[in-house]
């Protein structure tokens, strides 16, 4: 464990807590893409298949349970909670996320470290996480105005993977033979996808005005 990875995990934890807080307290999911939340639930379900077989540490197991629990409960809230579901804008949240799942699965079957069931699904979860934010970013551009909590959620979600990139650089230089191109490239692409959001988020924060992405 290094400071970059710990900062990344805490930022990731903060992002899901901000979203859960928003949905649970104001009982609204306005501006939040259910498709992105469903993709994240799939990401965690396929990445943490080893949760009961490989014990790494209490921290590792605890965080996996938190991420699994929060992502599935957010999906449940947005789909089934009688009040929250009314604020879900399904007419705007139309990104065909199945067009993301299939290519990621095919790619994971071609590019992986070992062609086994768990390894292919683990690789699939990395590719899927890299593009999971797309429905949310498309929804933002459609709905134009977004509330602060949703903006903070996306910012934290992007920042966590940026911290992980520093973690991978650190581990590359401190641990011999620590080379994993697949998460590195997927993580880099994921962070780049947030590029323009970060740009507009920073400018809205600097000029202290409402965050608006260009149409």
């Amino acid at each position: 464990m290094n400071i970059f990875r710990f900062a990344g995990d805490m930022t990731h934890l903060a992002s899901v807590l901000v979203l859960l807080l928003k949905i649970h307290t104001i009982k609204s999911c306005a501006g939040v893409s259910l498709k992105t939340q469903e993709l994240y639930a799939i990401v965690f379900a396929t990445r943490y298949l080893d949760i009961f077989t490989d014990f790494i540490s209490l921290y590792n197991t605890f965080m996996k349970l938190v991420f699994l629990g929060s992502s599935f409960s957010i999906v449940w809230y947005m789909r089934s909670h009688k009040i929250v579901r009314r604020s879900y804008d399904k007419d705007q949240d139309t990104f065909r996320h199945y067009f993301l799942i299939v290519p990621c699965l095919l790619l994971a079957m071609i590019i992986n470290e070992k062609f086994t069931f768990r390894e292919v699904l683990w690789t699939f979860s990395l590719f899927l996480e890299a593009v999971a934010i797309l429905p949310q970013l498309v929804l933002l551009q459609r709905t134009r105005n977004i509330d602060n909590l949703t903006g903070q959620y996306i910012f934290l979600l992007g920042a966590y993977r940026a911290f992980y990139i520093f973690n991978w650089i650190y581990r590359y230089f401190t641990e011999p033979h620590y080379v994993h191109w697949i998460p590195w490239i997927a993580g880099l692409l994921q962070t780049l996808l947030y590029g323009d959001f970060f740009y507009y988020y920073f400018h809205s924060w600097k000029n202290n005005k409402k965050l608006q992405l260009p149409a």
């Binding site: 995990d9 080893d50 490989d54 790494i56 540490s57 991420f67 683990w122 973690n167």
Partner: peptide
């Protein structure tokens, strides 16, 4: 026998 490097990251 080197055990496979575990996936210790989240």
């Amino acid at each position: 026998f080197q055990s496979p490097p575990q996936k210790d990251e989240l």
